[in-house]
Design a protein around this nucleic acid. Structure first.
Lengths: 165, 165
DNA sequence: CATTTTAAGTCAGCTTTGTTGACACTCCAA
DNA sequence: TTGGAGTGTCAACAAAGCTGACTTAAAATG
């Protein structure tokens, strides 16, 4: 990467190449969310609920503050979503064992069921894309995505990976 | 892609790998939109305006119907955005030369100025990501994104590339 | 030529998901 | 014991999506 030829640089860093990358991100993200969105619509939930459920599933016992930082929304916005999930019995909130101000969040059995349904759909598309592109393409895909993240989110992304891989 | 070993398959198609890909998409998309969003916020426009501007810049003279298909929103939703851009003199609408029902959309000079400002910011991040990941990673990135798209959008994505590359 | 279909625009009303700002309560730590 | 952090909640608002109904003009079709 450090010792590219001038021509090679130009080939993949032209404005046109970058524009295509931008459009690819836009169209791909639509596909990325399409399947879960379908499921959610039939259940009176939205993408915001999915995101909360995803990260609680990913880090059981996570606190509200941690979730806020992950999702990058305001406390009020998350709270509205979280409240419906608590009321509907998909998420359980336990008072922090050491710090009693904190609420630790867990999926209930039915929360887990919905999570599985959503993530099965999303992973199915991902799996098909990965399979058709092949392992080397996937490695590149991951590299570029990581480089696009804000440093703070990249840090969080790595932290997530460490705790579960 | 056709002749992978079983082990290799398992290595990059595990649920955990797919989950990481999903999270990478989520965090990267935040970065992807962060810079234009900052600029837009200071100008009382939103992401929806950016998207309209982008595709009009990309395909000057495009019709409203074509834009609708690209963006995947309703006519009413697009219209609200388009109206403010017309009123503010960023987009120009000309009656179709052959079919007078159609409106062909063009950026005005100031529309082009905003487009450049937004896409410079977005491309800068993209360029940095591409450069740090290298040309092979970029190729893989594009392959996976393309495979994630819905077929109809993939078709449109290719059409876009043909007309401008 | 009459009818139907298409492209575009508009009005009204609703939903989701984000935002500020203000405030209360609990609890940890200095 | 006081200041600040973590959480929850109220109110009000904005962006951007949606549905449904309707108009106008022009093209396409019979």
């Amino acid at each position: 990467m450090a010792d590219l030829q001038g021509d090679e640089m130009r080939l993949f860093l032209t404005d046109e190449q970058l524009r295509q990358g931008i459009e690819a991100m836009f169209f791909a993200y639509r596909g990325f969310t399409a399947d879960p969105d379908m499921i959610l619509a039939s259940k009176a939930y939205g993408r915001a609920h999915h995101r909360a459920i995803h990260f609680v599933a990913r880090s059981p016992g996570t606190t509200v503050n941690n979730l806020l930082a992950m999702l990058g929304v305001t406390k009020q916005s998350l709270n509205r979503v979280l409240r419906t999930l608590l009321q509907d019995g998909l998420i359980e909130s336990r008072v922090g064992p050491s710090d009693k101000r904190e609420r630790h969040l867990y999926l209930t059995e039915s929360g887990n069921a919905l999570e599985r349904e959503l993530s099965d759909a999303q992973r199915a598309r991902m799996r098909a894309a990965y399979r058709s592109a092949g392992p080397e393409a996937v490695a590149g895909f991951r590299q570029v995505l990581e480089a696009m993240m804000d440093p703070e989110l990249r840090r969080r992304y790595h932290t997530l990976r460490e705790t579960t891989t």
